[in-house]
Amino acid sequence: MRKGQYRFVAGFLFIPVALYLIFVIWPYLQTFGYSLTDWKGQSQTFSFVGLDNYTALFQDDIFLKAIWHNILFLLFIPVITILLALFFAFMLNAGGRGRAGGVSGVAGSGFYKIVYFFPQVLSLAILAVLFGAVYRSDSGGMLNGFLMKLGLVEESSPVEWLNEPNFVLWALIAVVVWHGVGFYLVLFSAAMQAIPRDIYEAALIDGAGRAHTFFRITLPLLWDSVQTAWVYLGIAAMDMFILVSTMTAGEYGGGPDHHSEVMATVMMRNFLLYGRSGYACAMGVVMLLLTLIVSVVMLRATRRERIEF
């Protein structure tokens, strides 16, 4: 390329980079700046307090609890979602047997594929309302109503799903998994369809069963997609704000008694309700760092040699 062209290309690249710097990087820097102050959030008067907010942060039981909950989400949400999505995708694409000639999904797989995708078209807000009705704590709730019909739960003492310290996190994980499986199923399906059929047929001829085909052929060839899914789900697990704040008890959720608190809900409460915005900014910075670390670790940990086909 000639000299002028570099300038020309740079001219086009400049705008996106500038937008990114201004709307993403600059707010991060600002947040970091505010996190060193005692800003109260409603005006521009504040003073510099150094790292006090960060010191306080790591003595704040509620925030530490919230980090722990995010870590639990981080462990369970990606694992459960990816395993289920992989299993279903495999059954839909290569799990069928019995028909002559080649590899296909189980009977009716086209139909299932559409059905699995349904939850994905719902927005998180609708999801919260929907599962609010599922987990409702009296006989009007779907789960409670069902269990009462079966006689497993007494009408006078229904299960208060989202008000049980031991249940609430699982109830939330179930919502996220239900919502996410369909999308990753489609992602994995697309990747599976790109795998040449002769490989499967060769395996079949060699006498490989379903399990063997899956672990020896499908999974290794899907690794890139799984890695992507892992990072996306990991980031979602670090957030969880919408579901927790709308479904669980208390202002900005987190109830009962902080048992479902995540970093984002603690941050919002401090920022908007308690007027401790500088402190909340420190939480934001910690969230950013943790999310970055998680992404890097996940990408590193799942890195494998790429198989060309």
Partner: peptide, 30 residues
Amino acid sequence: RRDLIKRSAALGLITVPTMSFLSACASGGG
């Protein structure tokens, strides 16, 4: 034409930052 593009790039350089410096920063000058 190249002048035109240079100019528009320069415009982007100037207008985009100024506009958003006003609106994007939480601490817009009171």
